[in-house]
Amino acid sequence: MIHDRCLNNLENEDLEIRFLLEAIFLKYGYDFRDYSKAHMKRRIMHRLSLSELNSISQMQHQVLYDRVFLETLLNDFSINVTEMFRDPPFYKTFRQEVVPVLKTYPFIKVWHAGCSSGEEVYSMAILLKEEGLYERTQIYATDFNVEVLEKAQQAIYPIDDIKDYTYNYQKSGGLTSFADYYIARYDSVILDHTLKKKIIFADHNLVTDGVFGEMHVIICRNVLIYFNKELQNKVFKLFYESLRNGGFLGVGTKESLRFSDYMEKFDTISENLKIYQKKFEA
């Protein structure tokens, strides 16, 4: 009966997915073994349905022998959906609660982890510029997907998105007109190149790479939702160790330190908007 196949297959598919992720890790060093299972399964089945492959086991064979196919899978697994000034209240609260503290520092280091194609980083650059902090800031923008990092460096975005971004910018407490920050060309816009001056884009994998030291601010939004709880904890440890005393951590609106082992090591600046501050260590 076709119907019973479904249940048997589920068990086998779960095993095949484990083998596939193990193979990718052993061969290439990319570690997806502690990503959310439901998420990985969706992405893998999606790729399977688009490909000529008949099973996940065949996919495993393919990825071992074909580096280009690995790149395809990496793109499938790293959901790159992003926006400028996503969740405007986050930026508004950042302006109100975090900026006044940053103003007391002579030099500021900011790390955007999982920055995707850069929209979030440039949003922060605009905010810091408007607050008069940009010139004394160094922003590190990292992702493990080098293709999106290249896009981020170009800072060219579809013009169709500008309406939404303008709306977001206004809601986020922007001080001037959003149109000041881009030039329109055909169906794209290119962002003001001076926004790039203090940004360094770099390849960094949150699962396998190490600490990025002495940050005043770490922003990592909508990345942790793709990890299981253990991996989330591991990454919170990485952030904790990369922050200075009194440094700020901002995560996605639906992500939280609350269920992690690191909750007591931070003060909550805004539980709604998920902005936390590392406590001072003795």
Binding site: D14, S36, K37, A38, H39, K41, R42, I79, V81, N222, I225, Y226, N228, K229, K254
Partner: peptide
């Protein structure tokens, strides 16, 4: 999405048939 251990996961991946949240995504998981 629901995980096999009954934990809830969220995702910002692309809209599925123009929808986020998508009913298919919830039901399939």
């Amino acid at each position: 999405l629901v995980e096999q251990d009954g934990l809830i996961s969220l995702s910002v991946e692309a809209r599925v048939s123009y929808a986020r949240p998508s009913i298919d995504v919830l039901f399939e998981s």
